[in-house]
Design a protein around this nucleic acid. Structure first.
Lengths: 196, 196
DNA sequence: TGAAAAATTAACCATTTGGTTAAATCATTT
DNA sequence: AAATGATTTAACCAAATGGTTAATTTTTCA
């Protein structure tokens, strides 16, 4: 493992746990087991290190599942496929949604918003939606509202995970189990909402 | 306006915008137009000031709409009423969900999790759910999953507001308009999901 | 092998930050 | 008005933080 990789791995953890403001360069250095000066040697500044991590992580959260989506013909199929794929990612990186949301929610972070890769929304979601709706294959719902709902339902348990786990006393395994059940539950909801 | 009120008002804004770590005591003092020492005179420390704000704001986000809910007989009615009431609160305090989520998501904040008033979930949500489900008035969905979905659909647009506004170039008025439309959209979704 | 380049370290620095303090001002009561 | 207590201020402080630097070690390669 190179020093650069050690730094990135450590920075990911610290930034995800503590956020940009809460993260300390020394803490990253400690976790990476390197001298603090190396952080600046490789990434110049805290801002640049953070941006590196953010850009990388955002690619994971807005994945390139567009290609695979083409296989699924109807809009409803696409949505169900999305839920399934997305929960694999979320289960793997449960802190990602909060990391992205909290970065984007800070003032003067318009800069990071532009970095969000959202093309696939127009390309696969909207296009397919209107096509199927014109054919009467899905109900007259507002596609934008539906997209927000789909994202919200998917992502919210992960945003609220610490609260959920804290309140219900469930283990990490319990949570994963709940999220696995959730895939088919959300697919059912989507079908109920969309099927005319 | 007393000094204490000035402080609270200023602290609310700064903490909501910047989070605990990002907030500066000096910034709060400046916004309140008072001397920084007053903050400690009235609230002792940054932690105690923050806690004061958090506890207060959390009461707003988990409102006492339980009483009014009794009027609504069926579970579906209750859910629709909840959506309507909740969006009034969210439109008024759009940054609250992020504030609470981001506080709770930080390590070592188990302490704040205990402060979340969630009794009304068991009291009004679960109880009514099982009652109506036993009578076959609602579909066989998992109440916990449904609650998570309902919260997620409701709250997510506000969590993602900066990104949404940034990407779509919509104005604040556009956003509010979208959220107003959203009330009936979500009520429709809830009915479609729950009605057998 | 040996010199140049890259990587690493320890010590250091300027600034910021939450918090304190002692003195000053204002309000209240007698 | 004088004494008392509450409120407010400016100056200050120690600790922490992001960042730098000069020297040292390791790697590269002619």
């Amino acid at each position: 493992m190179t020093t650069e990789e050690k730094i990135i791995t450590a920075a990911e953890q610290i930034f995800m746990e503590q956020g940009f403001d809460g993260a300390r360069m020394q803490a990253i250095a400690d976790k990476a087991e390197i001298n603090k000066a190396m952080l600046h040697y490789y990434f110049r500044s805290k801002d640049m290190l953070f941006e590196k991590i953010f850009v990388e992580k955002v690619k994971v959260l807005f994945p390139a599942i567009g290609e695979q989506m083409k296989q699924h013909l109807s809009f409803i199929d696409k949505v169900c496929f999305f839920i399934e794929q997305y929960y694999q990612i979320l289960n793997k990186y449960p802190f990602l949604p909060f990391f992205v949301i909290s970065t984007v929610n800070k003032k003067d972070n318009q800069h990071f918003i532009q970095k969000l890769p959202i093309d696939f929304f127009k390309e696969f979601f909207l296009e397919s939606f209107f096509q199927d709706q014109a054919q009467g294959k899905i109900r007259q719902v507002n596609p934008f509202q539906f997209a927000l709902s789909l994202m919200g339902m998917s992502v919210f348990p992960f945003l609220a995970k610490p609260a959920l786990v804290g309140i219900t006393q469930m283990s990490d395994g319990d949570f994963t189990e709940l999220m696995n059940q959730r895939v088919v539950e959300l697919q059912t909801y989507a079908k109920l909402i969309l099927t005319p």
